[in-house]
Simulated scan of single mutants.
Amino acid sequence: MDTMTMTKIVGAGCGALLVFLLGAWAGETIYHVGVESHGEEEHAEGYAIEVASAEEAGGASDEPEVPFEEVYAAASAEAGEGLWRQCASCHRLDGSNATGPHLDGVVGREHAAVEGFAYSDALASIEGPWAPEEISHFIENPKEYAPGTKMSYRGMADIEDRANLIAYLESLS
C-alpha cells in the first residue's frame, strides 16, 4: 500500500465525518427553528394523556361492594383447590415449613403460631386468630395488611377467589 492510497482512505473518512456533522447541524437548526416559531413557552417532549379515574369513569364505584361474609358463605372448596397452586410454591399442607409456614389448620390458628418458623415482626405483632376475613385481607395485599412482612406475594384481587381459597384451606382442617 502506498502513501497515495493511505491519503485517499483518510480523506474519505474525513469527508464522511464532515457529511455527518453537517447533517447533525442541519437537523439541529431545523428543530430549533420549529421550536422557536411556537413562541417563548416551554414545550415538553411528548404528550400527556389524561385518563379518568375509576370513580369518574363510572367503574368500580357504581357496583356495591359485597360483604366478604356473603361471598364466603357461597365459596367452593373445589374451586379453591385450583387456586392453591399459587400458594404451593412457598407453603405446604403437610405440617412442614417451606419458604413460608405450613398452612394446614391456618383458619382459626393464632397469628405467628407455627413453631420453628421465623415470622417477620409485622406478623408477630398481630394478635388474635386467623379468621377467614383476616386471611382475606392478608392475601388481598400482604404488604398493606402487615407492612414489613417477608411475604413477597403481590396479592389476590378477586374476592371470590380469596373466599374459595380460604374455604379450601378450612376444608383441610
Rank of each mutant, 00 (worst) to 15 (best):
S171R: 12
G58A: 05
S53N: 06
K143I: 01
E69K: 09
E50L: 13
S171D: 03
V10F: 12
T3H: 03
L17S: 12
W84Y: 15
V71H: 00
R162W: 11
A122D: 01
L18I: 10
V51S: 04
V19I: 15
E65P: 00
M1K: 05
A113R: 04
G80N: 06
N141M: 01
E50G: 11
F138M: 10
M6R: 15
G23C: 11
A122W: 02
A157V: 12
E70R: 08
E69H: 07
H111W: 15
M4L: 13
W84R: 14
G46C: 07
H43Y: 07
H43F: 07
H38S: 08
A26Q: 13
L83H: 13
E41T: 12
A16M: 13
Y119F: 15
S171K: 10
L165V: 14
P64C: 02
G58R: 04
V19P: 10
A52R: 12
L22W: 02
V106A: 06
K8F: 13
M151D: 10
Y119S: 10
V114K: 09
A12P: 04
C87D: 04
P142A: 11
M1C: 02
I9D: 06
Y119D: 07
A57Q: 11
P101E: 06
E45V: 07
A75Y: 14
A48T: 14
G13D: 00
M1I: 01
R109C: 02
L18T: 14
M6P: 03
P147L: 01
G100L: 04
E160F: 00
L83G: 15
G34I: 06
L83K: 15
D2G: 15
Y119M: 03
A112Q: 12
C87H: 07
L17T: 06
A163N: 09
V33I: 14
E69A: 14
G15N: 05
F117G: 09
N164C: 13
L93I: 14
V10W: 05
R154M: 03
A146C: 07
D94H: 12
S173Y: 04
Y31R: 15
S53I: 01
A113T: 07
H137I: 03
I166D: 06
A98S: 10
I166A: 07
Y168G: 03
A73R: 14
C90S: 05
E78S: 03
I126E: 00
